[in-house]
C-alpha cells in the first residue's frame, strides 16, 4: 500500500492509503476524542464527537474523522472554535442521559461542557452501539441489538441468544462508555423476562 502525507494540526503525518483521518492522527500521537470508535469494529460515525475540519482544494468541510479517509495533501484541523463548539454541545446532550459517566465527565472538562445544561433523562445509554457492534462483528452472536428508532431507540438483548451466549462472555460490559452499567442492566432485564434457568441467577451484575 502506498504511503501518503497529510497535514494534521500543522504537523506532517504519514499514513497508509485506506486509513481514516482518525487512524492517521492516532498513529502520529494526535488525539481526537471518540465515543463510538473501536479499533476492532467497522467505523460507525454515530457519536460525531470525532468531528474535525478538513480542507480540500481550498474548501473547509466538517467531517467525522473515524469515517473520512486520509488523502494526499489533506489539511486537517482537529480543534477549532467550531469543532470545539460542536463537541461541547454533543457532550452536553449526552450528559443529560449519563451524567455520571467518567469518560463523559473528563471530556466535559476539556471542552467546557455543562452537564446540567439539559434536563436529565437518565437512560444511561448514549447509543454508541459498541456492545451491539462488538457482539455482531467480533463475537458474531448478535445477542444484543438496537430496537425501535429515533429517541425511542434502545439496546436490547435477545433472551434466546443471551441466555446461551452471554454468561461466558460479557465482553461488551467493559466497552460501555457509561461504565458498563447499561449493557449489564439491559441484559439482566432481558434474562429476567425470559424463562427461569439456574444459569441466570448469578450473571455477575451489581457493579453499581
Amino acid at each position: 500500500m502506498s504511503e501518503i502525507i497529510l497535514q494534521i494540526d500543522g504537523k506532517e503525518v504519514k499514513a497508509k492509503e485506506g486509513m481514516t483521518v482518525l487512524e492517521a492522527a492516532q498513529s502520529a500521537g494526535i488525539s481526537i476524542p471518540t465515543l463510538c470508535h473501536h479499533e476492532k469494529l467497522e467505523p460507525y460515525g454515530g457519536c460525531r464527537l470525532c468531528i474535525v475540519e478538513v480542507e480540500v482544494r481550498g474548501w473547509t468541510q466538517l467531517v467525522v474523522s473515524c469515517v473520512y479517509l486520509a488523502a494526499k495533501n489533506l489539511i486537517v484541523r482537529t480543534r477549532s472554535e467550531k469543532v470545539d463548539r460542536i463537541r461541547k454541545m454533543i457532550l452536553e446532550l449526552l450528559l443529560a442521559h449519563a451524567p455520571d459517566a467518567f469518560e463523559l465527565q473528563d471530556l466535559a472538562k476539556e471542552y467546557g461542557a455543562d452537564k446540567d445544561r439539559f434536563e436529565k433523562e437518565s437512560s444511561f445509554c448514549i447509543h454508541c452501539g459498541l456492545c451491539v457492534r462488538y457482539c455482531a462483528e467480533v463475537k458474531k452472536k448478535n445477542a444484543v441489538g438496537f430496537v425501535d428508532r429515533g429517541t425511542r431507540k434502545e439496546i436490547s438483548f435477545i433472551p434466546g441468544i443471551a441466555s446461551k451466549e452471554c454468561w461466558n462472555c460479557k465482553e461488551c460490559f467493559p466497552l460501555c462508555p457509561t461504565e458498563a452499567l447499561q449493557a449489564a442492566f439491559v441484559l439482566t432485564k432481558a434474562l429476567i423476562s425470559s424463562p427461569p434457568s439456574s444459569e441466570l441467577v448469578s450473571v455477575g451484575i451489581g457493579k453499581d
Binding site: 460525531r48 443529560a96 431507540k153
Partner: peptide, 9 residues
Amino acid sequence: CGKCTPCRE
C-alpha cells in the same frame, strides 16, 4: 433513525 447524536438528541 437515532444513530447519530446531533439529530437524535
